[in-house]
Amino acid sequence: MTARILNIGIGLWLMVLPFVLDLPRSWANHEYIIAPIIISIAIISTSESTRDFRYANTLLGVWLLLSPWLLQHLGMTYMLNETIAGLLVITFSLIRGKVSERFGGGWRSLLARTPAHLLAVQEKDKNKNQRYGS
């Protein structure tokens, strides 16, 4: 939860960055596009069942690191901002946080050869059979 809130905070910071640094239009647009996506991903991955969606923010963090180099260079302050924000977004997105519920193997179970929810059924059947010897 905390890691997600921190990433929402970084997203909000990037959202106001164009005002703070008085960025030119095209650079402001870059922030206006990337910030709401980071915030949305962080909000969605707050839920335990969709927690692994946080890895999408890892990718966006990497993009933040690369963007000042790949796009037109715009001064030290801007570059430092993007780099620090990128590193922080990556770090927080890699923190799993507390997951107290279980979801039958989660979303990846849908592609698994032996999904956890199916194993749970078989396990239950086996216990029942042992107990009643059928």
Binding site: I43, S45, T46, E48, G105, S109, L118
Partner: peptide, 26 residues
């Protein structure tokens, strides 16, 4: 904000249904 906040809490039920259909298929 409201429509984004709804996504995470809504998806667990969808996952349960999809897993159920996976068991049906198996």
């Amino acid at each position: 904000l409201i429509s984004t906040v709804m996504i995470g809490p809504a998806m667990d039920e969808v996952l349960a249904s999809l897993q159920y259909m996976q068991r049906v298929k198996r």
